[in-house]
């Protein structure tokens, strides 16, 4: 009896997590999969027909927004990577005793709601807002100049909102690099650049990998930035899904779009993991 309990203990401890996973992930996913294979409308009701026509129709109608989302998410991720790596590097290696303070500053905006922060950016970037208004009246910017409702505003918003999720994993990876290993590289005739490229960068790649995952996926699916900062030409797939669900009540199309987005992201991540996540990159860096 005792032995049985001892063996079962770890599984029992994991039980809440499994229940959570089942109730809040498996069940909704199954329900949504089932909805995506129905036909009908909100007034006459939906019938389970197992027809994949919803997918074909949804992709046919919204592939522009789907591709746009992937492009925006991708561009935002690249910009975030370029911004985040130097930040993380600086905090990890030059932060000294103030490291915790810099990390706190990085997370400080999170104490304000995500949507509220994005709306504030809307105010800042407004055509006659506090940023551009004075510049325009001073004649430093043409009257027609605008940022809001363009892809610059949307991508900028994505970068701003998700940047910390890129910085933190890279910081953690860099922080774990043993400074003596870097010294060993200098001792073995490496220049600063060679030490970075051959030792620091490869050792921080797991952090880069995690950071890209944690930003690319939510940025691509995000509806808030496109809605608050974007215009008619910058609609992202998240907005479409939201409208289909909430406004049009076209649940099958919304579900089919959600699944398509999920599949595209999973395939993308898989390809990315195979190319970057494996030892191949490390081996290439070792040369």
């Amino acid at each position: 009896m005792r032995r049985v309990r001892a063996t079962a203990a770890p599984y029992l401890l994991a039980l809440p997590a499994w229940i959570w996973f089942g109730v809040f992930f498996v069940v909704p996913i199954a329900a949504m999969a089932s909805v995506s294979l129905t036909t009908g409308n909100i007034l006459e009701g939906f019938q389970q027909t197992f027809s994949v026509s919803n997918y074909a129709a949804a992709i046919g109608q919204y592939h522009t927004q789907m591709i746009r989302s992937l492009v925006y998410g991708g561009v935002a991720t690249v910009i975030m990577l370029l911004l985040a790596y130097p930040m993380a590097y600086w905090i990890a290696f030059k932060g000294g005793r103030r490291k915790s303070m810099y990390l706190f500053l990085l997370l400080l905006p999170f104490f304000v709601s995500f949507v509220l922060r994005t709306i504030s950016w809307g105010f800042l970037l407004a055509d006659d807002g506090i940023l551009f208004g004075p510049l325009k009246s001073a004649g430093l910017l043409p009257q027609g100049f605008h940022v809001l409702a363009t892809e610059f505003a949307v991508i900028g918003g994505l970068v701003y909102n998700f940047l910390p999720f890129m910085v933190l994993p890279i910081y953690v990876a860099l922080e774990r690099v043993d400074p003596r290993v870097i010294e060993a590289a200098y001792d073995l005739y490496a220049s600063r650049w060679a030490a970075f490229r051959r030792v620091v960068l490869p050792l921080s790649l797991p952090g880069v990998f995690a950071g890209v995952l944690m930003t690319f996926v939510p940025a691509t699916a995000d509806p808030v930035n496109a809605r608050v900062l974007g215009g008619t030409g910058t609609t992202m797939i998240g907005n479409i899904i939201q409208t289909e669900y909430m406004t049009n009540n076209d649940y099958p199309t919304a579900s089919a779009l959600s699944f398509t987005l999920m599949a595209v992201l999973l395939v993308g991540i898989f390809v990315y993991a195979r190319s970057l996540g494996t030892e191949n990159v490390l081996e290439a860096a070792a040369r």
Binding site: D178, R180, V181, E183, A184, A185, Y186, D187, L188, Y189, A190, S191, R198, V199, P202, L203, L282, A285, A286, R287
Partner: peptide, 29 residues
């Protein structure tokens, strides 16, 4: 600077490059 001195160091904790195999570690310099 150390990378221009013709001396090499064996570190207390070895400080081997964890992402490289033995051959690559030895060939680094």
């Amino acid at each position: 600077p150390p990378n221009r001195r013709d001396v090499n160091m064996v570190f207390q904790s070895y400080a081997l490059f964890p992402h490289m195999n033995v051959w690559e570690n030895v060939a680094f310099g």
